[in-house]
């Protein structure tokens, strides 16, 4: 048991290091600008006074390391600074929307993970059958589709007929049931986009194992194909499957950006796009940091879980 905690501690430290580097990159990116950030944001026609005022507001007169330190300590206390476009504290803007985005991502994950695992196992079980070939071709096609194409096809088919709403409105009066119903189309879009990849990788991981001698042994003992796959192949294929699932959940987090815009879903992605359009750098930095942290966290969990599922890695001598 101690080994597990030791490993988790190690991974956590590594994750923190990664996060630190990410924060440096996100903050330092503004330093790449050849000229002055204030002039770049306000354009050539800005007067010296407005430039000076903006520099003062952004704290551009301080040296970069000091600004980074102030920013980082602020972020650690939940203070991301003030949005330039709306003059509101960023934590207030982000706070309300973070929950919505997480809800959408979790909703899509709850739909896509069981579905893709089931399809992947079935495709491996009946490989080279019509089902396998058709699902493979469909998966390859789905991977190639831009998210907004999938989204609009769903709108055309499911929202046109009045089955589901094509826009999501969230107010304080919205109950969870309403939310599940009205966010169904965005969640389904995300599900379709990530399921293909997860399914293909699940199938590949299981088929890889089916060639090993111990599977042949199990077959020769006369076990049913279903039992061979479920009891003998899947537990050993868990590590790659967990990694693929984590990769796709991480993808979900960035994938929400486009889907939120299509369905006018009040989440972080929309906020980020608005901020990019207004060149509201502080907001973009804050959201980028949140997305990147989620990404790091998911990879960390996947790393720990896939180690735990493999006894050979757990009891390494």
């Amino acid at each position: 048991m101690n080994e597990i905690w030791l490993m988790i501690g190690q991974r956590l430290l590594l994750g923190l290091l990664t996060l630190f580097i990410i924060s440096v990159v996100i903050f330092g990116a503004t330093e790449l600008l050849p000229g002055d950030l204030a002039r770049e944001l306000l354009g050539q026609s800005a007067t010296e006074e407005t430039l000076a005022a903006l520099r003062e507001q952004l704290g551009l007169n301080d040296p970069a390391p000091l600004r980074y330190w102030n920013w980082l300590t602020g972020v650690l206390q939940g203070d991301f600074g003030v949005s330039m476009a709306t003059k509101k504290p960023i934590s207030e803007l982000v706070g309300a929307r973070l929950g919505n985005t997480l809800f959408l991502a979790l909703y899509a994950a709850a739909l896509s993970v069981p579905l893709s695992l089931l399809l992947g196992v079935l495709a491996a079980l009946w490989r080279n059958s019509i089902f396998d070939r058709a699902s493979n071709a469909l998966a390859l096609t789905a991977i190639s589709f831009p998210e907004f194409f999938v989204a609009y096809i769903l709108v055309l088919w499911l929202a046109q007929t009045g089955l589901f709403p094509s826009m999501v409105r969230i107010t304080s009066a919205t109950t969870t049931g309403d939310l599940l119903y009205s966010a169904f189309l965005p969640a389904l879009t995300l599900t379709l986009v990530v399921t293909a990849h997860m399914m293909r990788m699940t199938r590949a991981a299981i088929i890889n194992l089916l060639a090993s001698p111990y599977i042949e042994m199990a077959r020769l003992k006369g076990l049913s194909p279903m039992r061979v796959v479920l009891r003998h192949a899947v537990p050993n294929a868990l590590a790659p499957i967990i990694n693929v699932v984590a990769l796709n959940l991480a993808y979900l987090i960035t994938g929400v950006v486009v889907v939120e815009v299509v369905f006018v879903y009040p989440g972080l992605g929309q906020l980020m796009i608005d901020a990019v359009t207004n060149r509201d750098i502080a907001v973009v930095q804050a959201i980028a940091l949140i997305f990147a942290s989620a990404y790091v966290l998911l990879n960390l969990i996947a790393d720990v879980l896939s180690t735990i599922t493999n006894p050979r890695l757990m009891h390494r001598k």
Binding site: V257, A292, V296
Partner: peptide, 21 residues
């Protein structure tokens, strides 16, 4: 490695904010 730790779309959006579109 450091650059790749940030999701591609998010990093592109960050850079587009800084350099303009």
């Amino acid at each position: 490695d450091a650059l790749m730790a940030i999701p591609a779309l998010i990093f592109s959006l960050l850079l587009l904010t800084i350099f303009g579109t």
